[in-house]
Design a protein around this nucleic acid. Structure first.
Length: 419
DNA sequence: TCTGGGGTCCTAGGACCC
DNA sequence: TCTGGGGTCCTAGGACCC
């Protein structure tokens, strides 16, 4: 039986700022996004004053009661550094750590005699050494650990730790938690479930898995299984290579002339190429997009172009290609609010993708398909062969699946089944 | 007036192939 | 008149995450 913990830095960006400026303690504080547009972190004191996550600051700051809130521009170099400190503290206490985001890390506590005691030690050390207050959620799957973390945050009396390892603990908590609190179920899923009268996690668990799959596709079904205690999202310490990389910006002022857009795209392409080299990767494709402001009443226009590039392309060639693609999708007469450059299909230059589908005789291919079906079903995915599943037509993209990390984790299993 | 900047995965459907 | 079945590759778009 697996045991996972999710450690989450409370109001992480704000806590980082407080670590370096103790006068900010006990004060309402928010950290804003680039251009100081939106609120991306809030202390409890700021939450108490009604500031919402991702709210435009020009709205939130005007509310009565928000006058004493201190705001800061974001400092990602600092937050990245603090994140590494937090990682070091966790790695010193737990057998395995998987960073999930800048402020969240999963621990694999399988086989640890007293996970809750360890969680207490981790929290104390994180506060003492990294100066970051944290909450810890514990459960047999990542989704349950995430939910436990949420619960630990909600019930502030609870010492910042919530353990949902046992069925009994889950039964009590699920009835009290809204379905929207579940990792993986967003607004669209919540709306669909509401139509079935599903409001709490307990309601959700009363639905059969097949029905969930029908309603929310394979991802929803996987979440459902995870909540029932079956671990479907594997723990992995090895950092995965990123698959894409983007440089996008909202313009401070609407762009209406091509030369301005051209300059912006050239700058984005340059930054993207820098990032690419910093990671030691090469790209197989590029996407260029531009759009008008979706919040405005102005005529709307959204367009993007995707094209392949030689992985050896240097920055100047990339800029030229990006600008040419941008010119292609540019239309006069619109007020552009945002544009970006995305590099796709990133790989390490030396890396050769493993060939899962060697051209073989009919019979061994059929055996491979059967093996894939088995594995896919176990991981809550739609089965590979549409014919085998009685589904009308093939919409299954082999390429996508090959690149999917979850698929990769099953490679050995598949290959051994094939043998 | 002012509404972030990144990411991942899944589904659908068209073009094309044998 | 009948109009397959199994596949690849690509684009577009939705949904979700932090």
């Amino acid at each position: 039986m697996t045991v996972f913990a999710l450690v989450d830095g409370n109001s992480f960006y704000c806590s980082c700022e407080r670590a370096f400026d103790p006068t900010l303690r006990n004060k309402p504080l928010v950290v804003l996004s680039n251009n100081d547009g939106c609120v991306i972190a809030r202390t409890q004191e700021a939450k108490d004053r009604g500031v919402k996550m991702a709210e435009p600051w020009h709205i939130a700051s005007k509310r009565p009661g928000a006058k004493d809130i201190i705001w800061m521009s974001s400092n990602y170099a600092l937050y990245g550094d603090m994140s590494r400190r937090l990682y070091d503290v966790l790695a010193a206490h737990a057998p395995a750590v998987e960073p999930y985001s800048i402020d969240e890390m999963f621990l694999d506590l399988t086989g640890i005699p007293d996970p809750v005691a360890l969680a207490h030690r981790v929290r104390a050390a994180a506060r003492r050494i990294a100066k970051i207050p944290t909450c810890v959620g514990i459960g047999p799957t990542k989704t349950i650990a995430k939910l436990a973390n949420k619960a630990a945050k909600s019930y502030r009396t609870d010492a910042g730790i919530c353990d949902l390892s046992t069925e009994a603990a889950r039964a009590a908590t699920y009835a009290a938690m809204e379905i929207g609190d579940v990792w993986g179920l967003g607004p669209a899923a919540v709306a669909k479930l509401a139509r079935l009268g599903v409001a709490t996690v307990a309601d959700f668990m009363r639905l059969p898995n097949d029905e969930v799959r029908e309603l929310l596709t394979v991802t929803g079904a996987r979440t459902h299984r995870e909540l029932s205690g079956v671990s479907c999202i594997p723990f992995s310490q090895a950092p995965t290579t990123r698959k894409s990389l983007a440089v996008t910006r909202s313009f401070g002022r609407a762009v209406t002339r091509w030369p301005e857009m051209e300059q912006a795209l050239a700058a984005y392409a340059t930054r993207a190429a820098e990032k690419l080299r910093r990671h030691g990767l090469v790209a197989g494709g590029v996407q260029v997009f531009m759009r008008t402001n979706p919040f405005s009443k102005d005529p709307r226009y959204v367009s993007q172009a995707t094209f392949g590039i030689e992985t050896t392309a240097d920055t100047l060639v990339l800029i030229k290609d990006v600008v040419r693609a941008g010119e292609h999708i540019w239309r006069d007469g619109y007020r552009y609010a945002k544009a970006g450059v995305v590099l796709l299909d990133l790989v390490h230059p030396a890396e050769r993708p493993r060939d899962l589908f060697p051209s073989t005789d009919r019979e061994s291919r059929a055996r491979l398909m059967t093996a894939l079906d088995t594995v896919n079903l176990r991981y809550g995915r739609r089965t590979l062969s549409p014919a085998a599943a009685g589904i009308g037509h093939a919409s299954w993209s082999m390429r996508r699946q090959k690149l999917s990390p979850q698929y990769t984790t099953c490679i050995d299993e598949i290959l051994s089944a094939r043998a």
